[in-house]
Amino acid sequence: MSSLNIIKILIALALGITLGLAYGWIIEPVEYTDVPPNILREDYRVDYTLMVAEAYQKDFDTDTAARRLAVLGSEPPATLTSAALEYANRNSFNEVEIQALQDLLSAMQTYNPQGSAP
């Protein structure tokens, strides 16, 4: 077999790989269902955190708030709330919402799951 033919075969192989990757990554990528909340888009994560903060405004239950935040990932609840507060400040959330997030952040910064908050 001539070297030209070998080159043609290699080109065909590379073309096949390229087509396969394009199809698998772009045209028909793996579809995810049943995803965990830690890959939610940032605005959804922030809104979820805001809901937790709003609920906290009513019951002041730090355990429940921390447990609810935990579904967003393995980061500490204070880190999650801090990120949400930064997003809220950047995106001009209203005062009530920012206050709710600040209150939740204060609670989460002092939250101790083994005992009562100081």
Binding site: A12, G20, Y23, E42
Partner: peptide
Amino acid sequence: ALLIGLGAGLWYSWRISPVTYVDANP
């Protein structure tokens, strides 16, 4: 060769390194 390449590309893109989802919707 084209078919082998196609198969290898699909295998890689679906099994080895599938699209990683970020920014998912609720």
